[in-house]
């Protein structure tokens, strides 16, 4: 909860991780390269006070996560991604089994996302059914750039991907979070292309596609697609991190999103632990669009717009009734700790 002038803003971190990238878990050089690449993003864009030592960054643990998000970081709920990366990490990067442990401990705090990979074909379909049966799945997180047995990625409009999306809908899952952002070592550039979203969003009008990282550096392609497709949303993680080192550039990104998509289709995400939500949220709340940008784009970033971005848009997509959820959260272990801290 972010409190400003007596007003309470409900915050859902739409994109966060509980990863294990410790040395012991590196399967090969790719695992090492992956987390070191992430660490460059972390240390390069975070304010100095928020830069962690590398060892802590590799594996920070649940206690740190709970503190950084909920106790210190103004976050009420988090959308917990499951990212497998079994070709880089022995036990995976943050698979659903591990994420579910966190979910079980704080059931009202997390929306648990499952993952699927259409290259698993029929066997993976059964696994997805089983996952939804076993775990309280609230969405899926798709990583189209993931490597698998020589394949360097897949597309949302591959025939098998369509079968999985059909199944997703059948299983009652509405929200599909798709990673489409900057190329990360060692993944392939083409696998981050947003064009496949255009097909899937048209053909699956009952699913919501939240495009994490707004397709950067393909913001233009993303905007054209999201303007046309009513079920495509912008996930702000990565883009919002520019608010600290390059605020003017962030202003241009958010102005473009507001201009093309509107304030109801933008969702906050920290990409924790790449960045901590506390500084991102505080900077966003303090942020004002420069006058020249406001005038040119004819958009504004008022407190009401920020309220939508920080939580209400995600709450609507995930069918969370904010007053009821707030009441429930005030009584859980974290809520009690927050209350006692004043």
């Amino acid at each position: 909860m972010f409190k400003v002038n007596g007003d309470e803003i409900f915050v859902i971190d739409g994109h966060m991780h509980n990863w294990n990238a410790s040395r012991e878990n590196w399967l090969n050089d790719y695992g090492e390269g992956w987390i070191k690449c992430f660490y460059d993003y972390h240390s390069g864009l975070s304010p100095e006070d928020y830069v962690w030592p590398f060892e802590k960054y590799c594996q920070y643990g649940e206690e740190t996560l709970v503190k950084d998000l909920f106790l210190d970081g103004h976050v009420d709920m988090g959308i917990l991604n499951s990212t497998n990366l079994f070709e880089f990490f022995k036990e995976g990067f943050n698979p659903i089994e591990k994420n579910n442990v966190l979910k079980q401990k704080h059931p009202d705090r997390f929306i648990l996302c499952a993952a699927f990979d259409p290259r698993d074909e029929e066997a993976g379909m059964d696994k997805l059914r089983q996952t939804v049966e076993e775990y309280p799945v609230g969405g899926v997180k798709l990583y189209t750039a993931e490597w698998r047995q020589g394949s360097k990625g897949w597309k949302l409009n591959d025939p098998w991907a369509y079968k999985y999306l059909e199944l997703t809908e059948e299983l009652g899952i509405k929200n599909v979070h798709v990673h489409k952002g900057p190329t990360i070592y060692p993944l392939s550039r083409d696998a981050f292309d947003v064009n496949d979203v255009d097909y899937a969003a048209t053909d699956f009008p009952n699913l919501n596609f939240i495009i994490e990282h707004v397709g950067l550096p393909r913001l233009d392609d993303f905007c054209w697609i999201a303007t046309q497709e009513r079920n495509v949303y912008a996930g702000l993680s990565v883009a919002i991190a520019f608010i600290h080192p390059r605020p003017k550039y962030f202003a241009e990104i958010i102005a473009n999103l507001l201009f093309w998509l509107g304030e109801d289709k933008i969702l906050f995400g920290s990409d924790y632990a790449i960045w901590s939500p506390k500084w991102l949220i505080e900077k966003l709340m303090a942020f004002e669009l420069p006058d020249d940008i406001k005038e040119e784009y004819k958009v504004s970033l008022t407190q009401s717009v920020k309220r939508n971005i920080l939580g209400e848009n995600a709450a609507r997509l995930h069918e969370i009734a904010i007053p009821a959820r707030k009441a429930a959260l005030s009584k859980d272990e974290i809520g009690v700790q927050l209350a006692s801290a004043g």
């Binding site: 460059d40 390059r246 550039y249």
Partner: peptide, 18 residues
């Protein structure tokens, strides 16, 4: 929008470089 998009990688790289 295309210009802002094209500046993304360069902006990120310049921050990392700094």
């Amino acid at each position: 929008t295309a210009r802002v998009s094209a500046e993304a990688t360069g902006t990120l790289c310049s921050v990392l470089l700094q």
